[in-house]
């Protein structure tokens, strides 16, 4: 649809990010972190807890401007970004549908969302308030909000954390269904290797704090072929390439 040359991938080049505590102690969170996510690719940032994954995401979302370095978001298309956080962060005083529509630009406010709500199993819950939803359903509403905006790039920050494994698994499949229908450049932060192998085209492996890229792990196999047998092969080859990670 777009000329190849005009499409810039997500390019990250953060030289340094340091936190200063109130006592004046400085902690280096990120150091020489650079990677790229290609157009239409689903990438995962994988690293141990507390290594600075969420910090990276906050910088890319424009919420943290106190760092040295640069990054480039995909241009063309809507050039909007969307995010799904660890918590759903829905406005509790607005219904599920209002929450989704408020995130849309004015020109798209009235657009038909039936298909999206149906896919995510939220069709009957559009008029409920977030307090009336389970955590799993609230996460789905947050996914609906993110995909409804048709973003140029989608950021996901451990969107399935603190769910029981069955609910998380179902949500991962839902995410794949929605994503395959609307392929979007996506960057997901996770510390769950299985989740990363199941969802992504490529895994960006981060080292302990201060975070930098240890290496890349490409999963070229189409997602429908990633059955349990293949997954355990993938796991084995991942552990061969990155011993001691995850």
């Amino acid at each position: 649809m777009q000329p190849v040359g005009a499409v810039v991938p997500l390019r990250v080049d953060i030289a340094e990010k340091t936190f200063r505590s109130a006592q004046g102690v400085s902690i280096a969170a990120l150091q020489d972190l650079s990677f790229e996510v290609r157009q239409g690719e689903f990438a995962c940032l994988l690293g141990p807890s507390g290594c600075g994954k969420t910090t990276t995401l906050r910088i890319l979302l424009g919420l943290d401007k106190d760092f040295s370095g640069s990054f480039q978001l995909p241009e063309g298309g809507s050039n909007r970004i969307a995010a799904v956080f660890q918590e759903p962060i829905l406005l509790p005083w607005r219904t599920v549908e209002q929450n989704v529509r408020l995130a849309l630009p004015k020109s798209l406010r009235a657009k038909n969302l039936d298909g999206l709500f149906d896919t995510l199993g939220l069709a009957g819950m559009r008029s409920l308030y977030p307090a009336e939803l389970s955590l799993g359903l609230a996460r789905r509403a947050a996914l609906a909000r993110a995909f409804a905006t048709e973003p140029a790039v989608l950021f996901l920050d451990e969107p399935f954390a603190s769910l029981d494994e069955r609910t998380a698994e179902r949500l991962r499949h839902l995410l794949l269904t929605v994503w395959s229908a609307r392929p979007t450049t996506a960057l997901m932060v996770t510390h769950n290797l299985r989740e990363a192998l199941m969802l992504s085209d490529r895994i960006i492996v981060l080292a302990q704090r201060p975070a930098h890229v240890l290496g890349m792990f490409d999963v070229r196999l189409p997602r429908q072929y990633r059955n349990p047998q293949v997954m355990s092969d993938l796991l084995r080859s991942f552990h061969q390439k990155f011993p001691g990670v995850a």
């Binding site: 979302l61 424009g62 969307a82 995010a83 406005l91 408020l102």
Partner: peptide
């Protein structure tokens, strides 16, 4: 602050921020 950050990412207008957030 989570709500304000969400509103910033999804580019809520000023009036929407006052009224809905």
């Amino acid at each position: 602050p989570n709500y304000a950050e969400m509103a910033a990412i999804y580019r809520f207008g000023l009036l929407d921020r006052i009224r809905h957030v």
